[in-house]
Amino acid sequence: MKKDTIPCKEIDVRPFAYAISLVDGKWKMHILFWLWKKEILRYSEIKRALGKVTHKMLSSQLKELENDGIVIRKEYPQVPPKVEYRLSEKGKSIMPILSAFCKWGHEHIPDGWQIP
């Protein structure tokens, strides 16, 4: 072993990988942002807020967030069907991280930057 190398203890990447797996996906962080800001949104409102997302992609991302216990889906028995989404307690517990991410973005956004 070289003098200038420091032996590393084994690093447990599982907690990080788990946390990232919950928000991994092109639209999940965007969905969480809008639910954080608006609290309760219908499917069409989320789709409108996200803009270019496809129906298939949005449905898939919402199902994954629901299956992971991050988002709660409430369906009302009426015609036409009404479905609302909101953050679960587990989802709300992610918001300090999202808030810090927003703060960092606010502090480092280049002048004139626009959403692609």
Rank of each mutant, 00 (worst) to 15 (best):
M57C: 11
P116T: 14
L35D: 03
E64S: 11
I70G: 01
Y43W: 12
K103N: 13
H55Q: 08
K38P: 05
K2N: 10
I20K: 07
K28H: 07
D12P: 05
V23L: 12
I20N: 06
I31E: 00
K103P: 00
L58H: 01
I94G: 02
E64G: 04
H108M: 08
D111I: 13
E39R: 13
K26C: 08
I46P: 00
L50P: 00
Y43A: 04
E75D: 08
K63T: 14
P110W: 04
N67D: 15
W104A: 15
Y76L: 11
G25C: 07
H55K: 05
R48N: 10
R73H: 05
S93F: 10
W104N: 12
L65D: 02
H106Q: 09
R42V: 09
R73A: 10
L87I: 03
L87Y: 01
P15T: 06
K92C: 15
P81G: 03
E107C: 12
D111H: 04
E10G: 10
S21G: 11
W34D: 03
I115W: 06
V13Q: 09
D4L: 14
F16Y: 14
L35M: 11
K3N: 09
W27R: 01
L35V: 08
E39F: 08
F101N: 06
I6N: 02
G69I: 06
P15W: 09
S88Y: 05
W36A: 02
K28P: 06
E89L: 12
M29L: 15
A100Y: 06
K37A: 13
